[in-house]
Design a protein around this nucleic acid. Sequence first.
RNA 1: GGUGCCGUGCCCAAGUGGCCCAAGGGGACGGUCUGCAAAACCGUUAUUCGGCGGUUCGAAUCCGCCCGGCACCUCCA
Length: 497
Amino acid sequence: MSEKTFRLYDTMTRQVKPLETIEPGHLRFYSCGPTVYSYAHIGNFRTFLTADLVIRTAKAIGMNVTYVSNITDVGHLTQDDVADAGGEDKMARALSSKEGEQFNNVWELAEYYEDAFLDDWARLNLLAPQVRPRATQHMREQIVAAEQLIEQGNAYETPSGVYFNVESFPTYGKLSGNTQENLKKGVREVVLDENKREQADFALWKKDDKHLMQWYSPFGWGFPGWHLECSVMARKYLGDTLDLHAGGEDLIFPHHECEIAQSEALTGKPFSNHWIHTRFLQVNGEKMSKSLGNFYTVRFLLEKGADPLAIRYALISGVYTKPLNFTDQSLSDAMGNLERFKRSDAAVAAGIEAGRPGDDLIGANLEELYDQALDSMLNDLNTSVALAKALEGTRVILRDAESMSAASADSGKRYLDRINDLLGIVRPEHDLDAHQSHAPVVKVDEARIEQLIADRNNAKKAKDYALADQIRKDLDAEGIELRDTPEGTVWVVKSAL
RNA sequence: GGUGCCGUGCCCAAGUGGCCCAAGGGGACGGUCUGCAAAACCGUUAUUCGGCGGUUCGAAUCCGCCCGGCACCUCCA
């Protein structure tokens, strides 16, 4: 454990403060995962990337991290309360949608989107959590929690379900800066449920014997409320009090507020000592939504030819505490920067291979840049500065690339290894079974291109530059770019972005 | 109505009281290299931080008001 301090903004106290752990050097961390009713979009991943960077930074200063991130596969309602009998949760609604027709049942749908999610997760170099619990696999714990809350007088049963009584938890609203008074005033004119004592009361269990996913409980057939799963699973795997809890900004209220109420009512202890929330990602300056047609998924961008690490780079290029605007331009900027890391990586590999004698000319400089990058991350995850420092390191390496000594190359490799551990932007870290569903859309005939390159080189030898340039121009129009290098002419597929 | 957030160069985006006449990336322009390009490398590109007041020896940074944008208030990462 080093003497470095990891400072993060805390939503509860509204200030940047050191991240303290109950057990010295061991971070217990819970991050709310996705509801697997559809493909996750890049905004979801921005939030998961924040959690990922917390872990990488904590590890970089020698902390152990126990990281739990759930999969919500039941109970996430499209509306908290519904008057009509057709009230569905997100999973059920997805099944009855057009995309849902391909699935035999809601369980298959959940499994499909969970697999897709985990695939995207790995492509974006997100670290795997120690535990990835599912709501459907913690039914007993949720039912027990609901029963206990009733016994303690924090919850009550009605004909439609079991509800948490927010009046029994006076500090309800403290995370979002609300008071119960204000919340009462702010409640929208939604359908009123006569059975609830307060409209702000939220469901722990919904009774519904028609629901596609239902379990038997002391309250009859039904399913758990969305907020309960996180309380139960966080406690099971991390204990009564977490060191850190993370999620997207929309979860501050009501989700995390409700988690706090349930958990603290159950244990009598603080639920989490530190809360972080990632601001929303905008796309082309607008909120991402299906109706605006800017609902970007990882696989959509991959099909357009984006490198998954460039998506990662673009998503972490702004600090998590501010909204970030994701644009085609920011993605292509990221692709260019990613290239620099890849070239640096290739350069140091070549330098080590070549084994040139000489002093290490870059090690000290790189060491300093790494320290600056790490310090930036420790300062409330300042990814913008950390990436700037990391990039400066590639300049140091590439400047020296031509005649790099083996000693310099060793330093370069060490630098890139550490930068990759910290930011995950140099190399893919997961072995992916390469089912090539994400191949770029540009189809290429390699033999033909090689032939055209040969023709062009002959034209160049004959000093027929008009023909040579025409060949290059024609290929460029097809999306193939030629580059003359000391090792000969190479071609690359230009990005469709 | 309640609760929060943001406004920095042509674009993206750090910086939140002196180290800032403001990182980094893109773009543009100039240079090296090249048959010419591309790529790469080198350099230039904000006396200024939405507006107006105020606090201070000192403000992009703190306070007030105004203008503009966004989020949450029981669907959302």
